[in-house]
Design a protein around this nucleic acid. Sequence first.
DNA 1: AGAGTGAGTGATTGACCACTCATAGAAGGA
DNA 2: TCCTTCTATGAGTGGTCAATCACTCACTCT
Lengths: 199, 199
Amino acid sequence: MCEWFITHMTTKSSRRTLSTAEERRATVMRTAIDAFAARGYYGTTTTEVAKHAGISQAYLYRLFPDKEALFVAVVDHCAQRIRECLADGAARAGSGEPPAVLASMAEAYARLIADRGLLMVVMQANCAASEPAIRDAVQSLYARQVEYVRAASGATEEQIQEFFARGFLCNAVVAMEAEDIDAPWARTLALGLRHYPAE
Amino acid sequence: MCEWFITHMTTKSSRRTLSTAEERRATVMRTAIDAFAARGYYGTTTTEVAKHAGISQAYLYRLFPDKEALFVAVVDHCAQRIRECLADGAARAGSGEPPAVLASMAEAYARLIADRGLLMVVMQANCAASEPAIRDAVQSLYARQVEYVRAASGATEEQIQEFFARGFLCNAVVAMEAEDIDAPWARTLALGLRHYPAE
DNA sequence: AGAGTGAGTGATTGACCACTCATAGAAGGA
DNA sequence: TCCTTCTATGAGTGGTCAATCACTCACTCT
């Protein structure tokens, strides 16, 4: 929150240094994740997003044509981060057997979604499929993920499907905050799901 | 939509027959599913819900104290329908081996979520966990489901977890409307997921 | 120094939303 | 028939939201 101070108020003087629009867009995409994560597309106001990025709400509308385009841009940003994370996991496994590569990717993914915000934005987008533009963004997100996993692991269709099934289970457990609940049902769902505490 | 005509305008005369508040609440819970399914808790207006039930928005506020209570009631209603469905699946399997019972439950569940609305409400609720009352409703929904599946099937923890993992996969596929897409990634995700067309 | 370009904002607007209230009308019992 | 209780609505109210606009200021180039 209030990145403005970090990037612009390094000295005590009131001098301010302008960013380029592209830098600002990048800042917004990073900071908007936490805003949209909590209340989703409909429940998050553009004023909230602007505040998180340290800019005025009016300027947000110069950076993005409307709220929908802003949300789609944030989803695409998340998609890219997830792909980078899967690539990282695959690289770590080297050229092993498919199950070993999948396991390494799963491990990397589990570490990634220790950042709850990123995961929740993806889930929120999944639920906002009634907006065609958002639905398209979600479909393209999963299209790329599935094809990347297939290419990087060389696993069978069944193995890939199970990989994603466990991923969705993981998402749901984190979304409903069941990870820390000490009850049989919660432990059963979270069985063997690595839980990296938030940093 | 417009249930009012069905229950109240069976004759041409302008005479109207009142329902009891309890009947009305039941109607609202049934019809509100489709409203909340599309745009979630924040994106759905109380006017929309009232219209679906064929009553005025003002009267909705006599039946439910506020929007949150209304949404939670709808989620609880969905939870109950899912439990009935699982029980039906278990009954159909008789007293077979755990995997057979789970398969029968999965079959029943797949048939249930041919009704896209019911599934989407549950997913929307899962995403609205930032409201404590809604998060509690979701947790209690899954708590009962997991424990019911455990008791009815006698399966191991791992089997139960995989049962729910496949359930979440199924949910995600339906939510992102990937069932009908004719592309490798979509076919991989939907592999073996029975797809009952909407009635 | 002065002109031109792009970053950035305060104030506003019209639409819409959750929620309220006063009141009309139906059902049913004495 | 009159009276009470409950269903049901029209007409608001205050507040909030996405989107717009006129404007200021910072930086760059000449």
